[in-house]
Design a protein around this nucleic acid. Structure first.
Lengths: 212, 212
DNA sequence: GTCTATACTCGGATAGAC
DNA sequence: GTCTATCCGAGTATAGAC
């Protein structure tokens, strides 16, 4: 009992500082990228001292990787759930698109992270999500190949269809700052715009691949 | 005659160093982003001295802006040409998609540039392409709105259609490193994959919006 | 215009007291 | 675990010779 209580207190103390850093670092890395982020800015935003960052994470790189890793784990786990749901392909696409856009909105930093850091340092990033993404893809690829060969959808290269689906879901979130600006919307209008896409995108895809 | 010759020589001398820097800087900024790029690396890649960079462009920021500005000018000028071509909407989309993907492939740094730098420093970037992008959008928006109201395509929010078209063209180029990896392709295979998209994407879009 | 050498700032990382 | 003070390398920028 005493033991448990003590553990809980220590745990909270530890976690609160570590999580404080973690959350602050996530925000700053997301805004500035790995190279542009400043340890001082992270410390300020966490409301603690710069030395603490090194006490908990040793280096900037390690801090970045810890974050990237945790983010990806959660994200790809949920993504795998969406792919593994058991539905006929067209229903699955509808279900997937709606929930994937939702997932992306709740983790809007992930796509930009991956896109820009893959450009700036492909090798490091590869290792961090190598197994996760490829297995998800294989499942989806199989589903589509089957549907095409059964004549449930029009003939289409399954890889092209996957990239189309990803593009339609991810691009509007990854390019959000550019698009809000181009579309002359404010933040709320753009959120509403994305909300509408949940239905619009699946309609767009299904219209395109269904057999008339 | 002599005058002209002299000018030409000077010009070549000037241009060669300045362009050498320009090209090297473009490559490095593209690979590393603004914050991650190193003046030393640019100098090395240009085969000249670091001091020369400052002689020609004063600061790293100014060098970056000079490049971003020139790139955007050329890019948006060509984009405007594609939009202003006079064709019925469906033909126009087909024409646009094919040529836009081509343009993007020849300027593959532009989308990543804009997407990542818009995140990292929205204000600076806005000024650099404010007028260019909005006017292009208005023209396209008008074309689609007309086609919908004339019943030439199925009812669809024109803004959603524009974002769909952009997504299908831009995403595969912006996310290329991630996608080559995910799709387990090499560079040549991915280039071929994009080549196939020129036809596939316009088919995908037109299938989805045409009236049956 | 081009180079070498160097000034100076910034920022990641550590030492050491508490 | 948390702080202050500080080190030190890296990187932008400039001075000055040629």
């Amino acid at each position: 009992m005493d033991n448990k209580k003590e553990l809980k207190i220590d745990d909270n103390q530890d976690k609160s500082t570590e999580r404080l850093i973690f959350q602050a670092a996530k925000d700053v890395f997301h805004r500035k990228g790995l190279a542009g982020a400043r340890m001082q800015e992270i410390a300020d935003e966490a409301g603690i001292n710069k030395a603490m960052l090194h006490y908990y994470f040793r280096t900037k790189e390690k801090l970045f990787e810890a974050i990237f890793n945790e983010e990806c784990s959660g994200f790809f786990a949920k993504l795998a759930e969406l792919i593994n749901v058991d539905l006929p392909l067209l229903d699955k696409i509808e279900f997937f698109v709606e929930n994937y856009i939702d997932l992306l909105m709740k983790n809007s930093y992930i796509p930009v992270f991956i896109i820009s850091e893959m450009h700036h340092n492909p090798e490091r990033i590869k290792d961090l999500f190598i197994d996760r993404i490829v297995s998800v893809k294989h499942k989806f690829l199989g589903d589509i190949t089957t549907a095409v060969s059964l004549g449930l959808i029009r003939p289409i290269d399954p890889r092209q269809l996957i990239v189309n689906i990803m593009a339609l879901c991810i691009f509007p979130i990854a390019a959000r700052p550019m698009l809000t600006f181009m579309m002359e919307m404010d933040d709320n209008e753009y959120t509403e715009f994305i909300e509408l896409r949940k239905k619009e995108v699946s309609k767009f895809i299904i219209n395109s691949i269904k057999i008339n």
